[in-house]
Design a binder for these strands. Structure first.
Lengths: 262, 262
DNA sequence: TTAAAGCGTATTATTATATGATACTTTGTA
DNA sequence: TACAAAGTATCATATAATAATACGCTTTAA
């Protein structure tokens, strides 16, 4: 049913090129858990028939966006995917402004430092400066994390107006990631309130055990949180008091020094 | 003329979806120097007429791949571009294997450490661990650099067989980037020979003044250079003797410890 | 060793879908 | 204020994408 009306809308709109959308769907079929896909898998994931998968897959291969293993005939993303990332990074003033300050901070603090952007009910990391060994995913640029389980997401929501905040707290997904991930929405509301009061977000053991995340907000001219600068430290090395006393103020200072255009 | 035969080939091949290719062309219109584009600019860059640019642009916008400034009506890459990068990074075993070792190395040496992959006559950076402030472009993942002007490219070419090496040295582009960029192909051949003899690549002042790049090769099962691990240091801080004595051996050790599949 | 199933590849007729010309609207500038 | 340039909307047409079908190869089970 949804599919029918969707098709109808597309059909009526001659400014929407369905083939492009399908090709993009093939590209985004690849992810952390789908690093290498065969034709039939792609067909299944994208909801296309074999022929369609064949065509788009072939086109992406010929244009250099997909690698094809000659033996297994399976596809993988190519370096072109990374080049697109470079184009994004050049276009984002937040990244350009934050980068030098975060490098400096990372040098002085010796801990992992990141920057993120809100993306719906998630955040996406746009800068990652690894200094300590952790899980691979904690070093990945472009990684998507559910907002409510991250320090960044919490300070973002904390600056929403009443209505949006209520909506986010009621409806945004909160899947359990670690045994300590807070999934109780009332508790989460408390966390967000505290973040609002403090001015920065905190997340303890939410995505990785023994990890504390601290996030300070960067505002755009409209006064919304357009991004966050973040630091991740080990609980064992950094008791909460020291986090509040030594890390948070410096992150806030960095965040405040970043003035975004428009 | 080339265009005609190209068109013909595409026309005959029903497995090639031209609309997708055009959409991709729009996406890749964005780059370091084209961070924000209007409709007409996109039309010009991609060689499309206004209508085509309108359709693809609109489709990319509606699917969330392009941001559109409501006031200026200009387009910019969206975070989706970064998500694709994450998919690539997950899929590349070299990145996964190299990452922890390079973080460790970066911590101990305190200098910028990178990894790159060959891409035609260029290399593309797949890992960047910034520790010292430099130009923004030197911190960018996905950044493309002409191979012959980089330490990584030189050690890659050094491991080519006779014929490919000759071809690369004769035909690959060598645009001047800094006043000291080596553009003399005979000199470049010397550099590559020396790299072959040493086992690692060196590039002094080639992309950034006062910068020394050092690259060690990582081989795949077929014995080709599939990637490089690299370190960038300041000439002022690191005289060449120390680079050879202290950095190169450690990079070689790291490179040798990375065993790529297939 | 053979049969069967599953996957990737190739070819085709059909028409849905992308196309590009044109006209309209808005924006910015002389 | 008027003109030019950029963005937006509409539409008839045929190109170019489609999905069905058939083929060949590899893997697994009988």
């Amino acid at each position: 049913m949804g599919k029918v009306s969707e098709k109808k809308r597309e059909k009526q709109d001659t400014l929407f090129v369905g083939s492009l959308e399908k090709g993009l769907r093939v590209m985004s079929a690849f992810s952390a858990h789908r690093t290498e896909l065969g034709l039939m898998e792609i067909a299944e994931i994208t909801g296309m028939d074999k022929s369609a998968a064949q065509r788009f897959t072939n086109t992406l291969h010929r244009t250099g966006y997909l690698e094809k293993d000659a033996e297994t005939r399976r596809f993988r993303p190519s370096l072109r995917f990374l080049e697109l990332a470079a184009a994004y990074l050049w276009s984002d003033p937040f990244v350009q402004l934050a980068m030098p300050k975060l490098i400096e901070f990372s040098r002085s603090i010796g801990e992992r430092v990141n920057a993120a952007r809100p993306a719906g009910s998630d955040i996406i990391y746009v800068i990652r400066i690894p200094t300590q060994l952790t899980s691979f995913s904690a070093m990945l640029i472009g990684k998507r994390v559910q907002a409510l389980s991250s320090s960044s997401g919490r300070i973002i929501v904390a600056h929403f107006d009443e209505e949006r905040r209520r909506d986010a707290l009621a409806n945004w997904p909160i899947d359990r990631v670690t045994p300590k991930t807070v999934t109780d929405r009332a508790l989460l509301a408390k966390e967000v309130e505290e973040a609002a009061a403090r001015g920065y977000g905190i997340a303890v053991d939410q995505n990785i055990i023994n990890e504390i995340g601290i996030s300070a907000p960067v505002f755009n001219q409209a006064g919304e949180v357009a991004g966050t600068v973040q630091c991740s430290v080990s609980h064992l090395k950094w008791p909460l008091e020291r986090v509040h006393a030594e890390i948070a103020p410096r992150l806030m200072e960095i965040a405040n020094s970043i003035i975004l255009p428009r």
